[in-house]
């Protein structure tokens, strides 16, 4: 599903973000990418969706060589991969409904299909019908992250990447969100969670890819 072969990435100023990274994530897996700040977790996720290009190495996502992907085909890759951010990146001037429907409109879904899919996504993440017309600003931190997950899932991607999804949340909410991501994984989506929270990783007993200064450590 996701394969890295000796991937290297250096940012301007000789900052080595990733070096000699090789791993494989199987279809339907739930995996943590762990490590302290600056370990290269976000870079790894960005490489999967071709928001960054590696200096060396090959990356395969769903059988597609991401490194050699033409710019005009990047959107096809991104339709298969959902992305959740630590800071949610919600559009606060739009309603909860519009934040999700925007994705479906952007992907050319039929108008009559959109409400059904939006409500389905909201149901999966456990957001109630009453919030549909509200601004995301009216939601709690946990609800905002649920909304961000709903947005990432609404077009049923096969992979969900979450970059520090619990970074801005209280301890209780962290578990709630991780439980939700586990549920998403149970429903068939491959889930990759980047986090520095070792306690959380220990609690869920999933496979982890530990990164330290851009390298995978045993």
């Amino acid at each position: 599903m996701v394969q890295f072969f000796q991937v290297y990435k250096t940012y301007p100023g000789s900052i080595e973000a990733l070096a000699d990274v090789t791993f494989k994530i199987e279809k339907g897996e739930f995996i943590f990418v762990t490590g302290p700040s600056g370990a290269g977790k976000t870079t790894l996720l960005k490489l999967i969706i071709r928001a960054e290009k590696p200096d060396r190495g090959e990356i395969l996502v769903n059988g597609r060589n991401v490194v050699r992907l033409k710019n005009s085909h990047i959107h096809l890759l991104r339709r298969e991969v959902g992305f959740v951010f630590q800071d949610f990146k919600l559009l606060n001037h739009k309603t909860v409904y519009d934040n999700i429907s925007l994705v479906l409109e952007a992907l050319g879904y039929k108008m009559k299909e959109i409400p059904k899919r939006v409500r389905q996504a909201l149901r999966i993440v456990g957001l109630e019908e009453r919030v549909v017309k509200q601004s995301p600003l009216k939601l709690s931190g946990g609800e905002q992250q649920r909304l961000a997950i709903a947005r990432a899932l609404v077009n049923a991607p096969s992979i969900l990447l979450a970059d520090e999804p619990t970074g801005n949340l209280d301890p209780g909410l962290k578990v709630e969100i991780l439980d939700l991501l586990e549920k998403v994984n149970y429903l068939g989506t491959t889930v990759v969670v980047a986090t520095h929270d070792t306690n959380l990783v220990a609690k869920y007993k999933k496979r982890a890819l530990p990164l330290y200064r851009g390298r995978l450590v045993a």
């Binding site: 890759l77 991104r78 992305f83 952007a106 992907l107 947005r151 990432a152």
Partner: peptide, 17 residues
Amino acid sequence: REEIAIMRLVGATETFV
């Protein structure tokens, strides 16, 4: 810019954006 970034991230084509 945020809306455009999200559209691109979810796989909207450049033409669509």
